[in-house]
Amino acid sequence: MLYLVLCVLFNALLVFIFKLFQRYRVQTFQAIVVNYWICLVTGALFDQTALPIMAQNVGSPWMLSSWVLGSLFIGSFYLIALTTQRIGVSAATVAMKISLVIPVLFSLLVLQNTLKEYTFLNYMGIALALVAIVFTSRRKQEPAAAPMGVMAWALPLVVFLAAGLGDVIINYTNDQWLQPEQAGAFTISTFTASAVIGALALGYQALVQKTKIEVKSAVAGIGLGIPNFFSIFFLIKALSAFNNDGAFLYPINNICIILLGTFGGILFFKERLSGTNWLGLLLAVLALVLLSYQEIQQAF
């Protein structure tokens, strides 16, 4: 349970940091590239066995998987930014969050690592979690966007698939190939791929497109990198703690991140919620109860 709580806290912290990016007009892509290099440093300092483990496992299945995941990470960030600009914030947020249906189905149908026998109420909780995410993500005001033709649904669909595939890779790799002591090495290896690809892309922008690298964006990337490392590290640890039961973990993890992020937005950023948003929060709480009612019964 501790790993799940830590995973939620660090992911919610990422939400707050991205809100600050928007407020201070940070160049998000530049900050993201720097963030991946900070992830490497953070991981190496936090787990000093990680680099030797990586050296011993060059070419292993989990290391190849980590590089696929790292490539997907930075590609997904670009797609999310593009969707936000072309379609809108809500479309990008909803597509990213409801992608949990992909690892949930994968866990139930393929891995079948369930900690308990799922009942109708549990499945109702998963369905309500998806509805709650859509409702809490809706906002009245959207940035100016002019979706044209197939772009209006194609970009959110690609974000949905990319985000879901990333969670599936983490779940499958942790289930099939990773040992508990390799969590730090896998996380660092993943961010290495993202850092290398990001640096190449940023170098192209600077040299060919003459994009100016901003100091404040680099500083922002430092602040992003530390919690970003731990958000993935503790997700892997939480999956192991819950027997890689992604059908249970992913909905609860996402719902708790949304609840904490929403209330943090109200408290620290003076955000206002619509009636639909409040309904989404109520559904989120109900979804948590339905997903974990067996554990609640055992506790009492």
Rank of each mutant, 00 (worst) to 15 (best):
A55F: 11
A81S: 10
Y78V: 12
W67D: 05
V68N: 02
N57I: 07
A81M: 03
S60I: 04
F73S: 14
W62N: 13
A81H: 11
F77K: 01
A81K: 01
I74F: 04
M54S: 07
S65H: 04
V58T: 01
L69H: 11
I80P: 02
V68K: 08
P61Q: 09
M54F: 15
L82A: 12
L82W: 06
M54G: 06
A81I: 12
G59F: 09
W67L: 11
T83Q: 00
M63G: 00
G70H: 08
G70T: 02
F73Y: 09
L69D: 04
Y78W: 07
F73E: 04
G70E: 04
A81P: 02
A81F: 08
V58K: 03
S76P: 00
A55P: 11
V58W: 12
P61Y: 05
P61H: 08
A55R: 13
L69C: 06
I80A: 02
S60Q: 14
W62L: 13
V68L: 15
L82V: 00
S66R: 03
S66D: 03
N57D: 12
Q56R: 11
W67Q: 06
L82C: 04
S71N: 02
S71I: 00
L79V: 02
V58M: 14
Y78P: 01
V58H: 03
L82P: 01
L79M: 12
P61K: 05
Q56E: 15
M54W: 14
V58L: 13
V58E: 06
M63C: 07
W67Y: 10
S66L: 05
W62M: 15
L72C: 14
S71Y: 00
S71T: 12
A55G: 13
